[in-house]
């Protein structure tokens, strides 16, 4: 290194060696934080692990007992059902809103569209836990912002129990979630929208197609690939919703908003600290999302072809 030449890393090394050396940091991190935990979670889900076992460091093998226990637990089945309802509702609403808003911000001649476009990323940057807490202030029965709006505008003179009613609590949790994750769906739809050639629309206009017909026969079919991408990505992330549930309802009222991640967290990290059952329930969640991921992989693969 005495010469003034720049430091040359692996100049004489073969691409094979270099490829390995350059991937060492990634390989170490990923095996530590992704590969190893995935296998260790499977291991834990077949063993009895709670506080006593953690202290001793010995985890007795219990076979499928953890899985049997969670599947016979009505609360686990309810959590899965709630997760499905939550995901179905938020993803459907998100896709419809995303396409509508993407079309809206595509209007270059409307100056308010530019304002919307500027603000779209704001919800994306808000920490989910802060988002949840802000909405719990908005939902608050006594002091809440939404009830204040109802009073002040004169829409209603009785307070609405936004998140405290078991029949609507799940929807109350999903609206903040939609608020926070909508920007992502809008951006993808908008990017796809800009990829559609104006020629299609001009040709359709010449043939006398109205705005609605153009949307139905040109825009929507051409947006289909991106809609499927949004559908799969959003579905698999919505399945793991956690922060908003913690901030707004903590699973309540009663057990109306217990979702899959919340169940695993509560099982493993709240008394009686049944980490084995927590791992088993988290694994079931991962399997469901894994199936979605495989369909996503196929989809992407077909796009590359």
């Amino acid at each position: 290194m005495a010469r003034s030449e720049p430091f040359r890393f692996g100049r004489e090394r073969s691409p094979r060696v270099l490829g390995f050396v350059m991937n060492i940091p990634t390989l170490i991190t990923l095996s530590l934080v992704l590969a190893y935990p995935i296998f260790y979670a499977a291991y834990l889900s077949f063993h009895k692990v709670s506080l006593a076992e953690l202290r001793r460091g010995v985890y007795p093998f219990v076979g499928l007992a953890n899985y049997e226990r969670i599947f016979s637990d009505p609360l686990f089945r309810l959590s899965l059902k709630n997760t499905l309802i939550f995901t179905g509702f938020s993803v459907t609403v998100e896709i419809v809103l995303a396409i509508a808003i993407a079309l809206l911000i595509d209007q270059q001649h409307i100056w308010t569209s530019r304002v919307t476009k500027f603000l779209i990323l704001v919800p994306y940057a808000v920490p989910p836990i802060a988002n949840g807490l802000i909405w719990s202030f908005m939902y608050s029965f006594e002091y809440g912002f939404l009830n204040r709006i109802l009073y002040t505008t004169g829409i209603s003179h009785t307070a609405v129990n936004w998140s405290g009613d078991p029949s609507t609590a799940l929807i109350a949790v999903s609206i903040p979630y939609i608020w926070r994750t909508l920007p992502f769906a809008i951006l993808l739809s908008h990017a796809a929208l800009q990829g559609i050639s104006q020629d299609f629309y001009e040709a359709a206009s010449v043939d006398g197609a109205g705005a609605l017909q153009r949307f139905w026969h040109i825009t929507l079919p051409l947006l289909r690939p991106i809609i499927v991408v949004i559908l799969v990505l959003r579905t698999s992330f919505a399945f793991a919703v956690f922060d908003e549930v913690l901030a707004i309802t903590q699973g309540g009222p009663g057990d109306a908003t217990w979702v899959a991640s919340w169940y695993s967290y509560k099982k493993g990290f709240a008394p009686p600290f049944d980490i084995g059952a927590g791992a088993a329930s988290a694994y079931v969640l991962a399997m469901i999302i894994g199936l979605l991921a495989i369909s996503y992989g196929r989809l992407i693969y077909r796009r590359i072809q």
Partner: peptide
Amino acid sequence: LMGINVFARFVPVIVLMIPLYV
């Protein structure tokens, strides 16, 4: 490795956090 990365995004954090905690 790249292929694994595409799938890695789908692993829910809670699955990783239980074994990492232990």
